[in-house]
Design a binder for these strands. Structure first.
Lengths: 139, 139
DNA sequence: CATATTTTGTTTGTGTACAAATAGACTGTG
DNA sequence: CACAGTCTATTTGTACACAAACAAAATATG
């Protein structure tokens, strides 16, 4: 194998992104130890929507059916959201934030934005915008 | 809350990176269904080094002690690597790829590079370089 | 209307990922 | 030498993440 063809782990996008996500999660849990990024994402989206079915919430937060179920179970166990089968479509489980859930969201929304700021802190504003745009294009 | 201050999930780095990683993993498992990105990373690094202790391999692949143990266990179960306590330091577990492990690495190294190419395919070469550089700076 | 298909949710199994507690082995310093 | 501190590995518990298989409900289509 030619030297230039060598597979260098540290130069693969997947590896670098995995490490960047690790750092991001570390920042998140330092600033918001009360919940995980995933749980906050689900709660935030549900607060934005007011209500949504479990499936719908999963799609909007990019979690598959098994994952969103676990996240919802944990949020419900902490009484941050409620769930009830929909009368008009008994397959669907309608979710809504509780008063406590909305309070939790309001309490941490600013902190969550700060997590993004700290994650991007090594870059200047232009670079931050650039990174976000490039990432959005490889989704 | 001001409209401009609104927390928009889709614009948070963490959320976008998580989705980008999801797409990357999907591409990886389509091209290399035989193993996970994590397992390949550990195998690749071990092949590059020739040998390493479990702890060392974990550090170099950014996996914590519990994670690297699981990955090593699975690679060993498939006879892709061997492990043996080091005589001169009985705490350490020295790992080395087997002939089969090295063959597996050689077989998939080109595919793994192709995974990176496909992940970055929506971007032109300059943008790909840019994205990698920006990601490396927020690690 | 009857049934084939799709949608929603659950369950099971495997694989990262990390925190915290534990145990055994090494190292440094008094 | 003794022993305090450090390093390596293991174990346990929790939380994503996804595939696959299943059941129940709704919808589409003949």
């Amino acid at each position: 194998m030619d030297k230039n063809d060598a597979y260098i782990l540290e130069r693969q996008v997947g590896f670098v992104m995995r490490r960047a996500v690790q750092r991001h999660i570390a920042i998140f849990s330092a600033l918001i130890p009360e919940m995980t990024p995933t749980q906050f994402a689900a709660l935030a989206k549900l607060c934005e929507l007011g209500q949504a079915s479990q499936n719908e919430l999963g799609r909007l937060t990019s979690m598959d059916v098994a994952t969103i179920k676990g996240v919802v179970d944990r949020l419900r166990a902490r009484e941050l959201i409620t769930s009830a089968p929909l009368e008009s479509d008994k397959r669907r489980l309608m979710l809504a934030p509780t008063r406590k859930g909305r309070a939790m969201y309001r309490k941490y929304a600013a902190q969550a934005a700060e997590v993004s700021r700290q994650t991007l802190a090594p870059l200047d504003e232009g670079e931050q915008r650039q990174l976000m745009q490039l990432l959005e294009r490889i989704i």
